[in-house]
Design a protein around this nucleic acid. Structure first.
Length: 587
RNA sequence: GCCCUGAUAGUGUAGUCUGGCCUAGCACAUAGCCCUGUCAAGGCUAUAACCCGGGUUCAAAUCCCGGUCAGGGCGCCA
């Protein structure tokens, strides 16, 4: 007997096989398709588990056949009947239940359906707008049912892994203190505290650190994180992260645990064995790929040629602080395609993109004449050019070269189809600088977050030269997308205050805003660290999507609205009055 | 705040570059009829659309201007 048997059904639409021949059963579900032959009528009945073919034969039951003639797609019905095996020629191999069919002798229409505005079908992909407005119908589609079953599986494997590693799941508040750093907070007015506001958490960061101070050795949580910032394909106002924190660890320990977590997930969910994750320092990653989120599914590493080509008469190269190039072997790029890459570089902020082609004997391009023969020979030799090698050069200051050339690298890979879509290449990026210089505000910013521990070797530069301070920080990157980041936390209040001072939060302000955290650390904590792992992104990538809305049940549109329930909405004057809030909408 | 792209029946699209052959094509859906073995059934018939406003032109789905909406990106997102 089925474990999913209820008072209203004996089986689901996805489980009956030839083992159940002649059984009397009851199914309940949606009419997926009807095929009326004038006489016999076939109905594919659908529920979460699959499809089952129901047969209405006028010869055996006139009454039900008459009702069946009226059935339309998406009506919900309950049918009782007998499981019959199909003759050999009539087996449907595309269906789990394709070896059987149900001869109905009782049919009850539970609910007639209005004609749905979208097909419950994976053939036609409706527009984003329609999908979100009728999300409940969109979610009925087999594809979406699969996405959420898949997501559930991933989260179950992750939970199981965490539990086995002795992590305990602890929930932290949704109504929290607003934070001055980082993203814009969603704020919630407090009725009982006029003029005061809670914030919705951007992450459980402070709470999990405090949980370590409290002595909970290993914590995790599937935590909802909220940010009031503009949306993107991979950014929603709320997203889920697998948040974790561990006591008495080094970053190595944490990376090991997280690496094993991902390996376990890929093994158990996709049956894929992942090799050991590559580790790059921030400096190495910037050097080779121009970004701290490198996509390692393809090569095309950036080559620093500053010293090699600086001596040229080419003004652009002569004056540039950094010159890097990408070496494309066996290039078949047309002049037009190269031009479009040049356009891309300009759009992304470079002044241009220089190129040279090697024909097997000599370099060709309009700029070759500016380079002494010796330099040309060195280039050919050093970069091991072969016939039809194409070099794309970018000369500018450090930031522009790395930023733009990394985009050129990705563009090339997409254009030349160098990426195996089924490949998953994880890597760790470590040794991030703790601070970055904010030119607009003329101050230091925290590169990751303000609670990260400086490394022992570089902590001494904290006051003299913050740019030299390296954080005990690590990011996990999958296929060029940042999946999560973490660090060992500062657990000494004095050091924390110093770090806050560097980024322009003086002691007094620090006391006011983070006093509770600093105070907690006064009571002594073991060293600890952790990570926040983007869960929507992981699931989406595993399924081959960039769009996280594919794995979020009720996402917001680009304007952060939900077309289904029309949120955000206005509220009653009474509600506002209770909250001591006056509307002052400026347009 | 800025940039780019798009808007054609219920849904998804063709047509727009190069105005006229568009009385707007196709698929799915919907309605009706035929059909007793189909299976994302088949056949026939029918219903149904050029986002809004202005302009250019003999003529606008098509070109121009303004707006609205949607999507993608930049900024922003420690």
């Amino acid at each position: 007997m089925s474990s999913l048997k209820t008072s209203l059904r004996t089986h689901t639409c996805g489980e009956l096989t030839d083992k159940s021949i002649n059984k009397k059963i009851t199914l309940c579900g949606w009419v997926n398709t009807t095929r009326d032959h004038g006489g016999v009528i076939f109905i594919d009945l659908r529920d979460h588990y699959g499809l089952t073919q129901i047969v209405f034969d006028p010869k055996s039951n006139k009454e039900t056949h008459k009702i069946a003639e009226k059935l339309r797609r998406e009506d919900v019905i309950s049918i009782s009947g007998t499981v019959k095996s199909r003759k050999s020629g009539m087996i449907n191999k595309n269906l789990k239940t394709g070896k059987i069919e149900i001869f109905a002798n009782k049919l009850e229409i539970i609910n007639k359906a209005k004609t749905p505005p979208i097909e419950i079908d994976d053939r036609i992909e409706p527009s984003e707008e329609i999908r979100l407005k009728y999300r409940y119908l969109d979610l009925r589609r087999p594809k979406m049912q699969k996405h959420f079953t898949f997501r559930h599986k991933v989260s179950q494997v992750a939970r199981e892994f965490m539990n086995n590693q002795k992590f305990i799941e602890i929930e932290t508040p949704l109504l929290v203190r607003a934070t001055p750093e980082g993203a814009r907070d969603y704020i919630v007015p407090s009725r009982v505290n006029p003029g005061k506001f809670y914030a919705l958490p951007q992450s459980p960061q402070l709470y999990k650190q405090i949980l370590m101070i409290s002595g909970f050795d290993r914590y995790y949580q599937f935590a909802r994180c909220l940010r009031d910032e503009d949306l993107r394909t991979d950014r929603q106002p709320e997203h889920t992260q697998l948040d974790l924190e561990i006591s008495c660890v080094t970053s190595e320990d944490i990376m090991n645990i997280v690496e094993n977590l991902y390996k376990d997930i890929f093994k158990k969910v996709l049956n894929k064995s992942l090799p050991k994750f590559i580790k790059l320092t921030y400096a190495e990653s910037i050097d080779k790929y121009g970004t701290d989120k490198p996509d390692l599914r393809f090569g095309l590493e950036l080559i620093n040629v500053t010293d090699l080509v600086k001596k040229s008469e080419f003004q652009v190269f002569k004056n540039a602080p950094l010159i890097k190039c990408v070496h494309l072997e066996k290039s078949k790029l047309s002049r037009k395609e190269v031009d479009s890459l040049i356009d891309l570089s300009i759009k992304e902020g470079a002044k241009g993109l220089a190129w040279m082609k090697y024909n097997g004997k000599a370099l060709e391009s309009s700029i070759v004449k500016f380079f002494p023969e010796k330099t040309q020979k060195e280039l050919i030799k050093e970069l091991k050019l072969k016939k039809d090698s194409l070099l794309l050069f970018l000369a500018d200051d450090k930031e522009v070269v790395n930023d733009v050339l990394s985009k050129i690298r990705t563009e090339l890979a997409n254009k030349l189809d160098l990426i195996d879509k089924k490949d998953f290449k994880f890597c760790w990026i470590t040794d991030f600088p703790l601070f970055s210089w904010n030119q607009e505000e003329n101050k230091w910013d925290a590169e990751h977050h303000i609670f990260s521990m400086p490394t022992q070797e570089t902590v001494k530069y904290l006051e003299k030269d913050p740019s030299k301070v390296i954080g005990d920080l690590y990011d996990i990157v999958l296929n060029g997308i940042e999946l999560g980041s973490g660090s060992i936390r500062i657990n000494k209040p004095e050091l924390q205050k110093k770090v806050l001072e560097v980024i322009g939060i003086p002691q007094k302000e620090a006391e006011e805003k983070f006093g509770f955290l600093l105070q907690a650390y006064e009571f002594a904590s073991v060293s600890h660290g952790g990570m926040g792992l983007g869960f929507d992104r992981l699931v989406a990538l595993m399924l081959g999507f960039n769009d996280i809305r594919e794995v979020i049940s009720f996402p917001k549109n680009k304007a952060a609205q939900c077309p289904m329930d029309s949120s955000p909405s206005s509220v009653d004057e009474k509600q506002l009055k209770d909250l001591h809030i006056k509307k002052n909408v400026v347009k």
